[in-house]
Design a protein around this nucleic acid. Structure first.
Lengths: 100, 100
DNA sequence: CTCATCGTTAAGCACACACTTGAGTATTCA
DNA sequence: TGAATACTCAAGTGTGTGCTTAACGATGAG
């Protein structure tokens, strides 16, 4: 999941898709890479639940899956708040020692 | 930054550090890899602002930098909410069409 | 001073990853 | 039906990444 977001091209694709759904060709058009490469990136994004795609006729339309983003967001949030709680506890202990 | 979080070992290090600061040796102890490898991971984490370290004597102590985690968290949050706003606008338009 | 401890650095290796090319499939349109 | 469109798939290539080993530097203990 973070593996998927590690690549700047894939983050760009996610970014583009948050501004509305798009087809594979539309996603590939502004990029300096092959359409095949874009398809591979989309496979990675879909495999880890960041993007959902659906094929209608010969066109595949793609959109963001907010659940995926939320999962990554939550991981970071948990770690960050856990550490901030640790700092708070530390402050408490220091206060006690100061007043003792 | 997401690049740094892409590696499971590095996510493990962050996870460990959220439970309190630790030295390089302490971080390396439970891991099946060399101390040198851990040092390299820490360099990556520090370079992108996820971890802060300080050398006291011959011991280096490491702790999480919450600002780094918050930055990544925010990127995801912005993308997710942007997409959810898009969905809301879509719902509005559909409602209007339905009532027209 | 000597020696163990804790970390640092460099070199090298194996594998993974992003990308391309080229050929192929399925769908739409004239 | 024939041609164009919109992907899809497989194979190959070059670069990056994670890891190890090995040699080294710096600090603290006896």
């Amino acid at each position: 999941m973070f593996q998927a977001l590690a690549d700047p091209t894939r983050r760009g694709l996610v970014d583009r898709l948050t501004r509305g759904p798009a087809t594979v060709s539309e996603l590939a058009a502004p990029l300096p890479i092959t359409l095949a490469a874009v398809v591979q990136h989309l496979q990675v994004l879909e495999a880890c639940g960041l993007v959902r795609t659906e094929k209608v006729g010969r066109v595949r339309s793609c959109q963001v899956d907010p659940a995926g983003l939320r999962a990554a967001e939550q991981w970071l949030h948990e770690r960050r708040t856990a550490w901030e709680r640790w700092l708070d506890r530390l402050a408490e202990v220091l206060d006690e020692e100061g007043t003792t």
